[in-house]
Design a protein around this nucleic acid. Sequence first.
DNA 1: ACTTCATTCATACGTTCGTATGATAGGGCC
DNA 2: GGCCCTATCATACGAACGTATGAATGAAGT
Lengths: 209, 209
Amino acid sequence: MNEVIRMYENPTADALLRAARTLFARLGYHGASVRAIAQEAGANLGAITYHFGTKGNLYDAVIGRVLAPSRERLAAAAALPAPPLDRVEAVVRAFFAFLAENPDLPQFIMQQLMGSRPMPEAARQTLQANLGLLAGLISEGQSDGSVRRGDAQMMALSIVAQPVYLTVAQPILREVLVVDQGEPEARSRLVESVVSFVRAALSADSERD
Amino acid sequence: MNEVIRMYENPTADALLRAARTLFARLGYHGASVRAIAQEAGANLGAITYHFGTKGNLYDAVIGRVLAPSRERLAAAAALPAPPLDRVEAVVRAFFAFLAENPDLPQFIMQQLMGSRPMPEAARQTLQANLGLLAGLISEGQSDGSVRRGDAQMMALSIVAQPVYLTVAQPILREVLVVDQGEPEARSRLVESVVSFVRAALSADSERD
DNA sequence: ACTTCATTCATACGTTCGTATGATAGGGCC
DNA sequence: GGCCCTATCATACGAACGTATGAATGAAGT
């Protein structure tokens, strides 16, 4: 069955990808069985072998679909004609917006980072590119004096950590804060909180050592 | 086999807990099989049934052991006689120190948050307590004017996100930054970066709106 | 009408999973 | 020596797993 992955689309393959995305995000790679995925997709068990060959291939296909689109979204936000700090803010907002459309993305990012299985090359590149984007803006801001001194890459990681963590931690958020990110107004409060947190953390105004 | 969990310690049970901790952290709940755990522990397969009854009980026992000790460590750091902002810094440093001793802790925190399986009540309480600790310090700082305005709980989450995320993202860190957190000096640079990030983010100096 | 071919389906294979159990061993106590 | 009690071990069971495969289906091309 060393079949090459088909590139054209097919309703069944699409339904499988959609179902796999849901179940992999919720249950992890090992927790989601191919049978459960096929059933959720309303497809036959054999359809997975036919369209993707193996469960691993299916997972990699899902990862590609989930991660890749983030790249141009963030790049677009970073390309605005504005001072570096404002562009960082734009990237954070774009990230949140993208997360609102793809609430399962943080789960996949975390799964990849935690190495539940070897990271596909494409995924690693996307993650790295998004990180580099932020780091570049920070460096730029440091050059023109608007951003605090410090390791730009680490600062970028500190920034990325927040949207990802806050989305994954939604269940805790809901219990502790009684904040439901489903409601747009509650979500907006969260975004504003992170944005001002990041601005304050980066801004050169607060330099003190 | 509805056996109650034994409370006294036993070398085999201990080895099982240690092995389970390693494998659950690395592979997740579903990814780590009871056979692999028993083998890693040098114990017989039946020993798991005997000492813990089920795989789920074993996992819960591991979670308890991993999460619980963090609570008093952080509480001790938060109780120092110092201004709120300095105590927040102390908590962040204590958290990093605890993470250095328990590098697999972030994996478990994330697994719990991502709901790979229902969260044991004790785990939820520990997570919530640690968050409340930070939120309390922030509120205090807001009262005496040393900390920026904003939702204290959300700020606390923004803070916690960083040590957790940075530790989980170690593989990426190593590739992108060529920073090996194993080396104490590299790790110290990371800690200092986060500490100053957090101080800058919280400090009222930078208030600007 | 007949062939072709991509796709769907039922079903089977071998493996590994979590769990259960009965036999065996060994140490303290009468 | 006989007994209990805790612990270890080999082994077995049924279920679920990922994967494979050959027959059925149906639309397109001739």
